[in-house]
Write a protein that binds this DNA or RNA. Structure first.
Lengths: 244, 244
DNA sequence: CGATTCCTTGAAGAGGTTCAAAGGCCGTGG
DNA sequence: CCACGGCCTTTGAACCTCTTCAAGGAATCG
């Protein structure tokens, strides 16, 4: 019995790729969310499902890319090396975020994309978008919304994670990390990563995390995971704003 | 003798708006750079030419906007208020940069846009882009390039102006300002603006500028203008990177 | 010309960095 | 299995950068 038989007829898709996309958990939020099943069925390009281990690179800055990526699972960081030679983490991308949109314009990637956790992403080739934009121009509006989202993320990162005293920035980072939470547990970056996100030394990052543990803002069952106590975190953030 | 007579016949445009756009100094770099004269002639929407004095607001964050803007002349800053209640300047936009693209998607503006110098901008109404994208879909690609440019600017601002010691950030700011130079003279922000760009106090900004004047990196003929000595600036930047 | 606003400079103190060393958490190999 | 080395984290102490608080000076405007 083929798998098509267990699917209601009007949803039956004969293109295997289409079936994969139709079943994808993030499709509703992803680029092809606007496409109906019939349109999906016309996708004849292979959309690769890529898995990465923590630390593995998805793409490198300056590389000519022929694809963008949609994050299905896990957290990816975008980073750059400043002209001083220091690594700086620009922002994080999580489930349903899109990365490397610049490849859709034939440009080279603007930053390095590196997996923070175990990651799975869909590779969206440029040719596919080119084809679709001919047949279904409304996909371009969706694409522009992605750009705007990336820009909003960048602006928020700058305003909230790049200003004020170190402790405040760390609290904001924990808040941001809790957005990517995955069942109570939050991914806790290495101290070196934190320092690259918040522009501080790893010693300062370590001291702050230690202190926040003592204050009961977070617990770390293991090195790379934390339970964040939101009430304590929000309280800390409020007090922090008040006394300045 | 009408002005049309001095223009070669094949360039004669009968729509007055088209003439304005055809003559615009930034058209080549602007959104409608891809349109030929005939296409320009079909623009029947009025593209307002708006002038702003320093400190005047172009649009406010959260406002529902019906237009984006192309900077023709001058410098505009994008700023936000952080959740702590502090103002933060996100980046600067100069000649041929586009602002408020999010309005093209029916979204509210993501930041405040305020004139730093005397500014003139073209108002590009959303309806115009909607119409054009039907007739000339290639304009959408141009629009996406604008988004990518904004994102690149944001990323660069974050990596270069938000990390490292105060002196280094100030040097990078001067370098950035020199990109917007206007005949040897550079716009010199008020100390309060500098502090909002570089996340430091106005005292620190003032001290750094005073010191850099003494070092011969810049001269300030008046409060709001400076002459930047690029050789000295670049030398300072190099030494600064070396000793760290 | 006085009032306001912005800029500059000083001195004291806090916050962050630097340097140094010790403690934990692996994976490898004896 | 335990010992070892490597890597990351934590903590301490001294130092330095940047902030804070305060006051005087320059520019601008009615």
């Amino acid at each position: 019995m083929s798998s098509a038989n267990v699917i209601p007829l009007k949803h039956a898709l004969f293109n295997p790729q289409a079936q994969v996309c139709a079943d994808c958990g993030v499709r509703r939020f992803a680029l092809f969310g606007v496409l109906d099943h019939a349109a999906l069925d016309n996708i004849h390009v292979h959309i690769a499902d890529i898995k990465l281990q923590p630390g593995q690179s998805l793409y490198a800055a300056q590389a000519v890319g022929s694809a963008a990526y949609t994050v299905r699972e896990g957290i990816v960081r975008l980073e750059r090396t400043s002209e001083r030679g220091e690594r700086r983490i620009l922002r994080l991308a999580g489930r349903s975020d899109m990365l490397g949109l610049e490849a859709m314009l034939g440009q080279t990637y603007a930053a390095d994309a590196v997996a923070c956790t175990e990651v799975s992403v869909c590779r969206v080739p440029r040719t596919l978008v080119d084809d679709l934009s001919r047949d279904r121009p409304e996909i371009l509006v969706d694409l522009m919304k992605r750009w705007q989202r990336a820009l909003d993320d960048a602006d928020e990162w700058l305003t909230e994670l790049c200003s004020g005293p170190a402790r405040h920035r760390m609290l904001r980072l924990l808040l941001k990390l809790s957005e990517f939470a995955d069942g109570g547990q939050v991914w806790l970056p290495a101290r070196l990563e934190m320092s690259a996100m918040l522009d501080m030394t790893i010693e300062t990052a370590s001291r702050l995390i230690s202190q926040l543990k003592r204050e009961g803002v977070l617990d770390a069952p293991d090195q790379r995971h934390a339970v964040i106590h939101m009430d304590a975190l929000l309280k800390a953030l409020r007090e922090d704003s008040a006394l300045s």
